[in-house]
């Protein structure tokens, strides 16, 4: 065993402190959400072990119809949205990567122009209004349905598929759509997995478009409800629609209820975190600053 040098030991220690700085604020909320409401006051801002143990905060949160509905909305938007993202992105990436047509250069230039100039949130809002898409999930699913940056990542991947495979299929009489579905897509599973996670995380975390496009609380995704609760401190909306005795209300700790809502919003990301790490790291290193 080689002994750690002084410099190394200091670095190991500093990195340890950094990871604590990331973890403690999160674990403190976990501890708060799992503490017994009557004892949660004993928990300090740095504590990571629940005082007492109780699922009551989660039971209350998950019996709130508004929150339950919003979780269902988020799951729906994330799944359908990601599917449509993948379909549109891969279709366009295939055409741009594997075919030659007049005006391809123009299309590529057009895409770059779109990347550098974003429309105003005002005119985007007015467009959704004109299309009668306000208060629909479609507005959230169609907004940024193709991310140009991800499109370019997928294009680069499609370009690396050996021409011989595609040539062979063409000789067997396969058309473009056939080649796309039975050769290019199956060969691109790692890239598609990366994009699924990119788009999926985007949809799950999206709150701003939902804040401005969706005014009907029953259609809100979880992030908007969470924002209402945690950022705007709106406890009335949070408790509406729930049958609770005055006694029960008095025993609640709002901080802990907020904490458990935050944790619920993080759980799907934590469950997928090993996959996210694997594919995001790869996708970012391949697509980010390219050498």
């Amino acid at each position: 065993m080689k002994r750690l040098s002084w410099t190394r030991s200091i670095i190991y220690f500093v990195l340890f402190i950094i990871t604590l700085a990331v973890l403690i604020p999160v674990l403190n909320l976990v501890a708060m959400s799992l503490s017994d409401p009557s004892r949660v006051k004993e928990l300090t801002g740095l504590g990571v072990i629940p005082k007492g143990f109780s699922f009551i905060n989660y039971e209350i949160i998950l019996s709130n119809p508004l929150i339950l509905k919003s979780i269902a909305n988020s799951v729906f938007i994330t799944i359908v949205g990601t599917f449509i993202n993948l379909f549109l992105t891969s279709l366009m990436a295939y055409v741009l990567a594997r075919t030659n047509f007049v005006g391809k250069k123009v299309v590529l230039l057009f895409l770059i122009a779109i990347m550098v100039f974003e429309p105003s949130m005002i005119t985007e809002y007015l467009l959704m209004k004109d299309l009668n898409l306000l208060n629909t999930y479609a507005s959230l699913i169609l907004y940024k349905a193709i991310n140009v940056y991800y499109l370019f990542i997928l294009m680069r991947f499609f370009q690396e598929i050996p021409e011989s495979l595609i040539e062979a299929a063409r000789i067997d009489g396969a058309g473009h759509f056939r080649i796309f579905t039975s050769i290019v897509l199956p060969l691109s599973k790692p890239a598609l997995a990366t994009l699924t996670l990119f788009y999926g995380v985007y949809h799950w975390n999206e709150y701003f478009r939902a804040t401005i496009y969706i005014t009907d609380p029953n259609k809100w995704p979880l992030q908007v409800v969470l924002r209402q609760f945690v950022v705007k401190q709106d406890n009335t909306t949070m408790l509406s629609g729930m049958d609770m005795s005055a006694e029960m209300l008095a025993s609640l700790d709002f901080g802990s209820l907020q904490a458990s809502t935050i944790i619920i919003a993080i759980i799907p990301l934590l469950l997928l975190y090993p996959l996210i790490l694997k594919y995001f790291t790869k996708g970012t290193m391949d697509g980010g600053v390219k050498d």
Binding site: I24, P25, N28, M32, T44, V230, I262, A265, I266, I276
Partner: peptide
């Protein structure tokens, strides 16, 4: 070290605001 330090990148700003508002509160960490 890497898995922990990458984690906050995947949280939405709503979630991060929630975490920080609590951590910076008068009784916070």
């Amino acid at each position: 070290v890497q898995s922990v330090s990458y984690l906050p990148h995947f949280l939405s700003w709503v979630v991060i605001a929630g975490i920080w508002i609590s951590f910076l509160s008068p009784n916070g960490g």
